[in-house]
Design a protein around this nucleic acid. Structure first.
Lengths: 176, 176
DNA sequence: GAGATTGTAAAATAATTATTTTAAAATGTC
DNA sequence: GACATTTTAAAATAATTATTTTACAATCTC
């Protein structure tokens, strides 16, 4: 997964994958069909094991209180990813490159976490933590954009991700 | 430029470029050396003719007043780009793929517009349009991130860019 | 443990893509 | 208008990369 994450679908050769994973070329083709199939599987794995767990608490507790603490964790989790950004988001600009199946998968994933966050925001709203005039759908987009798009913008020279900087901004926007 | 913009450096073949530009293959190699040289030239062109003009007003008027109007124009300009995102930003996550020259060029460009915006924000601050307690450097990062990173996050299904949504958020953050 | 099945390494093939060459057409120079 | 230079289209080559095959080792079944 690492190579796809770092260099993107097209710039990742099958040899790279074989080298990195130790997988056998033939086994790989038998298991996943082709490079595209492997990429789809990678997306699923990323969703289920890397990002998923971070949002699992929202699934487990549909009435979760304390969005603030949750968001802080999500931001920090994203900031730790060695500045590689979000595997899915890094491919959002490349729908034609990754193919339609992968593009759909990525978009479905984004929609999914967006609606999870929206539910959490609505809860917070009904508890008075967020003003009743707020557009929770728009705020949810904004949160997803800042969390999953932001490492992209981490500078290579400073080697520092920019996400933590944005956490405060997002929180102010929620509380305003 | 279009192909690079839409599909990224690695997924763009020389044939694609030749087809799109009508350029002759041999002339292309004579003029730019190789694909990489052409990409570097593309980045320069993008900077000088596509994005540059949008920020030119900041260079021409170091004491520009009315950041708000300026920012609005920048947001709208970005939102119009056929949802391809920012050519440079789309490559930020791929420093190893595009090579070190291109990566440096992209980062220099980002730093440049960030500091232009920071100057404008400082002016606004000294005129009282922005609170004196604000960290203009951080705000500038935030603006660049929202303007140049946001189309990335426009959904393919809805075909709508998300940038306009963020304009309000950014303005609130400035005025807060 | 013989025989069937599965996994593996390495080489072979196929497909794509970057770059160069070639020979002709276009253009410029005197 | 003849000659030199430059541009162009097309084919040729080189390099890379995706996929398949082959021959063999490991594992499993009875």
């Amino acid at each position: 997964m690492g190579v796809f994450w770092r260099n993107g679908y097209k710039a990742t050769s099958v040899s790279d994958i074989v080298r990195e994973t130790g997988l056998n070329t033939a086994s790989m083709y038998k298991e996943f069909g082709d490079k595209d199939g492997l990429f789809l599987e990678t997306l699923s794995h990323y969703r289920n094991h890397i990002i998923g767990p971070r949002y699992q608490i929202l699934i487990d507790n549909p009435n979760l209180t304390g969005v603030e603490m949750f968001l802080k964790n999500v931001f920090l989790g994203a900031a730790k990813q060695e500045y590689k950004g979000c595997l899915m988001m890094n491919h959002l600009a490349q729908k034609h490159v990754v193919g339609v199946d992968a593009a759909q998968k990525i978009e479905a994933f984004c929609a999914e976490i967006e609606s999870l966050i929206e539910i959490a925001l609505k809860n917070a709203q009904s508890e008075g933590d967020i003003g009743s005039d707020k557009d929770t759908s728009q705020l949810a987009s904004f949160v997803v954009f800042c969390v999953h798009g932001a490492v992209l913008y981490g500078r290579h020279d400073t080697k520092k991700p920019i996400i933590p900087k944005f956490y405060d901004t997002v929180m102010r926007e929620l509380r305003r």
